[in-house]
Nucleic acid binder design. Structure first.
Lengths: 243, 243
DNA sequence: GGCGCCGAATATGTATACATTGCCGTGTAT
DNA sequence: ATACACGGCAATGTATACATATTCGGCGCC
């Protein structure tokens, strides 16, 4: 087996399989066979089954009728829906945080992240630091999911975000680093501030609306990508889209 | 092993375990040991692991640190959040159905269910048919989840509803069959009609709001139950609540 | 007396042999 | 020619032996 991190065969197999699926090395809809994979990874069937079971929990695989697993495949509409769903769930997290009053420490923390994101933008007309933006953006959305203190909301949000194309940072790096992309980031950052401010002011309805609108940026970026380039293979997880 | 349905040992073990957990025979937080369960069910460890793995996918179990599984446990707040989440997701399904325009056949179908629910109410001051109501109510909520045609939304909604206390019918049978319960059902049915009508009229915002409010009935029923009786054990899945 | 280490007990992790099931192709009979 | 049945193959289902890891108690040292 290629050297991938993890201490047990199960963990390594899980990591390796997940990687291959997200990279697009295994197409959506492909059926996975225990024996073949076990031989390929040079381990026995048991950890392979275990790994597939975990990836099914993650939502990357689905159990096939009559046993076994197949790589889950998505339609273009599924991607749209997953992004919409993320917006709805983040909106709920934001609304609940606003209604219940977020913990001051948590608010300080998320504010710190927003401030740091500002530093990703250089002087006017200089390129932004897309890598750092992507990283901080993920941290922001993680902090947002935790802000209302609900383990239930957090769990479902994590679940949706684990779909590679529904991740908040999915289309940050996917886009070409041009002026339009730069502008998009500026708008997103404005929404970050508005979102935190709405929560602080306990404006639940506004917080929810802003969070939903914020997710729509991802949808627009997706649609732009679709229009500009016929091939979608360089966007994360888009190889799982089959139609 | 007690005779439970299923053709393979895995399926029987899955069914049996799920039953025991929901019935409250295994408390929330309990760690499940493969060997002990295997002996008890008179099968080997392999199908037991497989069953536990599937129940983890369902959300009834969680993987313990350092391997193994434990019965997931919930706080009272988790139950509240799960109900709220169901409302949010059903609201989204309703809104999308309204915005995109639901399939006429689907609309006819859900309308038929609503009409049938009317028959559960007898003449004035006669008891309603709670069993039949519960059944049709579940069918209504299932039809609602499918109405927007999104596999993504459907899947997540099914997931939340699989938590026994977040199911739409969780508190229908749990309540004592008194006049107050009867009144609650009448109100719920009014919301059913309003919901379908909003979707038909393509009033997305109204549809979403009604769906959310509808879920709040479950929350109120829960709070009423908590107030009236100290013990919560007769409500579905409430044995998993530990605080 | 408390902290930490060590080892046994017990748990899960892994490999593998065997059982069972479901599918597909081929054959024959109508 | 079609339909049914038989058989073999290939997949998952299951049991079990063995390997490894984790945990917890006791014992010793600080």
């Amino acid at each position: 087996m290629p050297e991938t991190k993890g201490s047990t065969h199960t963990k390594r197999a899980t990591y390796e399989l997940r990687h291959r699926i997200i990279e697009g090395k295994i197409a959506g809809g492909t059926r996975l066979f225990e024996v073949a994979l076990a031989e390929e990874l040079a381990i026995s069937r048991t950890p392979v089954r275990e790994a597939m079971s975990r990836l099914a929990e993650e939502g990357l695989l689905e159990r096939a009728s009559g046993g076994g697993f197949m790589v889950r495949s998505f339609t273009y509409q599924d991607v749209i829906d997953a992004i919409e769903l993320r917006g709805v769930l983040e909106g709920t997290a934001a609304r609940l945080a606003a209604e219940q009053g977020a913990d001051p420490d948590d608010l300080r923390h998320i504010n710190m992240i927003v401030d740091e994101i500002d530093h990703c933008f250089g002087a006017i007309d200089t390129p932004a630091d897309f890598d750092r933006y992507s990283e901080l953006n993920a941290a922001f959305h993680d902090a947002l999911a935790r802000l209302c203190g609900s383990a239930i909301i957090l769990r479902e949000l994590e679940r949706v975000k684990s779909l590679p194309f529904a991740s908040p940072s999915a289309f940050v790096l996917g886009r070409s680093q041009n002026a339009a992309a730069h502008r998009g980031l500026v708008i997103a950052q404005m929404q970050h501030r508005a979102l935190v401010e709405a929560i602080r002011q306990r404006e639940g309805s506004r917080a929810e609306a802003v969070a939903r609108e914020h997710a729509r940026i991802a949808r627009e970026n997706l649609e732009t990508s679709q229009r500009e380039e016929k091939t979608v293979s360089n966007l994360p997880g888009m190889s799982l889209v089959i139609d």
